[in-house]
């Protein structure tokens, strides 16, 4: 059972190598001539006068929170969907109730304007 997952583990390793080897090659083969102006962050010719990790719109945060709720929902739906054939009507109604509660929350956040971007 678990030996099926060995190729996946190796493949992830190969995937990492496919990223690391070109990077290392590029750093070895490419020239290395550092220069103050070249190495400064790009800001359309201006000198960067402050740290660029600035404040950002709170809505990005809100989207992240909403994502967690919905993604968790999907994680719950996956096993339910696989077993739908065998759990029949009871399973369907249970999930309908669960989805119904989520839909009410979704409508609430929609009305509150959490999904508005302008």
């Amino acid at each position: 059972m678990l030996e099926n997952y060995l190729p996946i583990l190796i493949f992830i390793g190969v995937g990492l190598l496919v990223g690391i080897i070109p990077l290392a090659l590029g750093m070895v083969i490419g020239p290395h001539r550092p220069d103050g102006a070249k190495n400064s962050p790009y800001e359309c010719g201006f000198e960067a006068f402050e740290d660029s990790r600035m404040k950002f719109d709170v809505r990005f945060y809100l989207v992240a929170i909403l994502f967690i709720i919905f993604d968790l929902e999907i994680a719950f739906l996956f096993p339910w969907a696989v077993a739908l054939d065998s759990i029949g009507l009871f399973g369907l109604l249970a999930m309908a109730l669960f989805l119904g509660i989520l839909v009410i929350g979704f409508i609430y956040e929609w009305k509150k304007g959490a999904l508005e971007w302008e």
């Binding site: 090659l25 590029g26 083969i29 490419g30 020239p31 290395h32 190495n39 962050p41």
Partner: peptide, 13 residues
């Protein structure tokens, strides 16, 4: 071409 270009790491990065 990309292989022979410098990999720049910005100072503040």
């Amino acid at each position: 071409k990309l292989l022979t270009k410098e990999v720049i790491i910005p100072t503040n990065a």
